[in-house]
Design a protein around this nucleic acid. Structure first.
Lengths: 349, 349
DNA sequence: CTGAAAGCGCTTACAG
DNA sequence: CTGAAAGCGCTTACAG
């Protein structure tokens, strides 16, 4: 981290809030309206005046005040983001992707946390709207399509985790079925026949789709689905740990575990460790998401990559398109299996 | 995640932006000035009018528009937060602490990421100020005291990772020396005599203080400091992994490793695993911070707890005090050693 | 292509 | 204790 001193002090002086649009107008010898027009490209302005305004802006170091813009009915250059949790390994990088993409365009995110509760989520949206955000990005919310549509009547909405294509409403959705299939296929190819699956929170579409992918892969391979090997989880580490305990208690035979996300896989890894079962020698383990720490778990976790950073970036880019009045065209990358060290060939293959 | 439907649609109607202060004034039969006064408690208002206003507010479901407030020179009820990174396991929960504390008081955080760069940090501050935030919380920045003081002249600042007590400026700082000492003492008490230390980024005060604590504990125990056992790290997993490789290459004898943060400890754990060294049987390992995943690493990591959530909460609370014109009184909890399963008695004790 | 004017929703001296 | 008025910094019809 570099140290800023003289530089910082200097920057302090010509701070954004000093110059106003009115001062720019005076300096350029035009009316405030004209300045506003060149700023927003909202009308054709003669090149002479346009240049004069440009020069005045540069000389004064003028930066439009987003607050005033917001009040005047224009854009606030801010977009609301409601995340179920701001400090999860997955949503954290999604937020980073959003923040970077947005700030590159001069926009700021206004982040609110719904704590995995739809009522809170609704409240967050209201708060954000009262702050005049130009649009709202919802990360995996629990709101119905009807409610979403209603919001989209008022301002552009981007929502992840769902397929949706209504006016002013854009859904970003990974192919979780394919991802679930990929992970399961990998295990099957390694010779595993008894593959346990730790589900995610069933209220989450992603969770059910990954399960569907697991089932599909088994079926394609002609393997029977053993319901006793499907253990409910809740997407967090503790539930992964508990799932392994249940699995072991059940006495069912298994040589591999596929957890519906990395956090549960990490919990499962600890559970196996507690019972002195080695990964992957005794049990192969696969997660989902490829969160940052997956690379540094011991052993490094094989997983399905679903880049949170990209989700964030694409969601922000879609929002930027929408506020610009253009149609967003989002194409999410397909899920990809990442083989690391938590999987190996089944011994009883 | 509960599903909201009818409820959501309803909430949509009486959205915050509908009623204005003017409407409240009309309904209560008073002037807008009076409404503003009861809203802000900025002057004594007769109880009759106060009640009338209160009733009107309730009936209309009025919520003041923060944007208008901001423009009018009042508070925006928002505070800027600049974090080196928004998706790190440590800063993530700090942000959550801030968000929860702030939103409880009706404030919203405006989060910007400096990407560990002081120039970026300066830029973030400017952006936040142009957005008229009521104050700024800086997480571990690289700005000089002079620059901070200059900013504090204009708006309240809270900064973590430093001891500072200037007007309008409040520093929150954990006792890292004590924390470093605690971790090292624990290892010494277990009989370890050759304890390696993986440092943090030296440009970070925390890093040096933890090192100082390590040195102090060795000295107190009458152990000599072996410089070859102090390996530079950068606070991320990769550097922890690399540090173990260097340590092993050096041929120095060691039975324990103390990493200046949990992320490096996790990297170190992988490094040891790669060389078939078991934790804690072959090498004891201690981290610092107690990030969420420390509890689920294999084995669960012994560490020094420095609650990021509390840092966030306290920083936000201090800011709330300052914007209210009161003196913040922050008392951080002392660091605490958390013994888990990555440490055990030295075999050659 | 360009200005003057009104207005966004609040706050804050200024007068009572 | 309370109003009328001006103003925060911009945008946007409305007229040319």
């Amino acid at each position: 981290m570099k140290t800023v001193d003289e530089k910082g002090t200097k920057a302090l002086r010509n701070t954004a809030s000093t110059a106003t649009l009115e001062m720019v107008a005076a300096r350029a010898g035009v009316s405030p309206s004209t300045v506003s027009r060149v700023l927003n490209g909202t009308a054709v302005v003669s090149s002479v005046k346009r240049n004069a305004v440009g020069a005045a802006i540069a000389e004064l170091g003028f930066v439009p005040n987003p607050v005033a813009r917001g009040l005047a009915g224009g854009r606030t250059l801010s977009v609301g983001v409601v995340a179920p949790s701001i400090d999860s390994p997955f949503y954290g990088v999604v937020l980073r992707g959003i923040e970077e993409e947005l700030s590159r365009a001069g926009y700021s995110p206004l982040i609110a946390s719904s704590r995995f509760d739809a009522t809170e989520e609704q409240h967050c949206i209201e708060v954000l709207r009262s702050r005049r955000v130009d649009g709202i990005i919802l990360l995996d919310g629990g709101l119905s399509v009807r409610v979403l549509r209603a919001h989209a009547k008022v301002l552009p909405m981007v929502i992840t985790g769902r397929h949706l294509k209504a006016p002013n409403l854009c859904g970003l959705h990974f192919d979780n079925i394919e991802g679930g299939r990929l992970a399961t296929q990998h295990l099957i190819e390694l010779g595993h026949r008894h593959i346990a699956f730790i589900t995610g929170d069933a209220r989450h579409p992603d969770a059910n789709e990954r399960l569907a992918g697991y089932c599909a892969a088994l079926k394609e391979a002609g393997l029977e689905l053993n319901p006793a090997l499907v253990i409910p989880g809740l997407f967090h580490e503790a539930s992964g740990l508990a799932a392994v305990e249940r699995l072991l208690d059940s006495g069912e035979r298994f040589s591999a575990i596929f957890a519906a996300n990395d956090q549960m896989a990490l919990g499962a890894a600890l559970g196996l460790h507690r019972h002195s079962m080695r990964i992957p020698q005794d049990v192969s383990l696969v997660g989902y998401d490829d969160i940052a720490i997956a690379l540094y778990s011991t052993p490094p976790l094989s997983t399905v990559r679903q880049s949170g950073y990209e989700v964030g970036q694409l969601a922000a880019a879609a929002m930027l398109k929408m506020v610009a009045g253009e149609k967003p065209l989002v194409k999410l990358p397909p899920p990809k299996f990442i083989a690391r060290e938590s999987t190996c060939a089944a011994v009883d293959a």
